[in-house]
Every structure is written in C-alpha cells, then in structure tokens.
Amino acid sequence: WKKSLLARTLARRSASLMQLVYGQASAELDNDSGEEDSSDEEIFVPKGQKKQVKNELPSFDDIDAEDYSKFLKVELRDWSNEDLIKSIRDRFVTGDWSKASVRGR
C-alpha cells in the first residue's frame, strides 16, 4: 500500500508542476488574441500553488521583467558546514559510487 500511496503523490505532484508551468500559459494565449485583462486570472490561484509561485517566481506577472538568463540565488549557504558537505558528498567521484548510481535511476 505504501507503493500505491507514493505513486499517487507522485502523480499529483507532477500534475501540479505541469499546471504551474502551463496552467497560466493558456490565460496568456487568450490575452494575446483579445483585450481582456490578465490580472483577474492572476488573482485566482489555488491556495497551495500561490505559495509556491511566491517562493519561486518573484517577478511572475511582470511583463516588463528584465531578460536575464543568470538566476541569482538570494542566499548562499555556508558550504564549509560539515552537514552540507555530507549531503552532496556522493555527487563527487570521491564519494560513494553505489549510492550515486541509485540516484540516477
């Protein structure tokens, strides 16, 4: 039963990611053909999604957003911290190879 639960959560999460990317795109398309305002579409966002949007997309509805391809992270973690070092140790050839191959699957 655990497996089915996991599969279900996964399906839901991927659906929400697709929605996050393409959900509002359809609204944008309408906007291009007609003159309707997109701002009321922006107001009605599902509760959970809105939070995510806020976290990830600071300039989400800004049509004049600057065109940067560099994505600047606000805060950088302190990588001399032992716990952090341990968390990505296996991404390097000096780490555990068997764990890394599990990750690739």
Binding site: L10, R13, S14, L17, V21, A25, F60, Y68, R103
Partner: peptide
Amino acid sequence: PRAIESLRNIKEFLDVKFIIKPDPNS
C-alpha cells in the same frame, strides 16, 4: 523562473509541450 518562461514561449511558438515529472529520489 526563466526556464518556466522559456517553456511557455516554446509552447506558444513551437506548440511543443513538455511532460514534466519530478523525481523525488534525487
């Protein structure tokens, strides 16, 4: 955010929709 914008632009111009799947393992 920029990648998401790209995906939208791609859909609009090329009509290519990506299937996006999160991988919880990694």
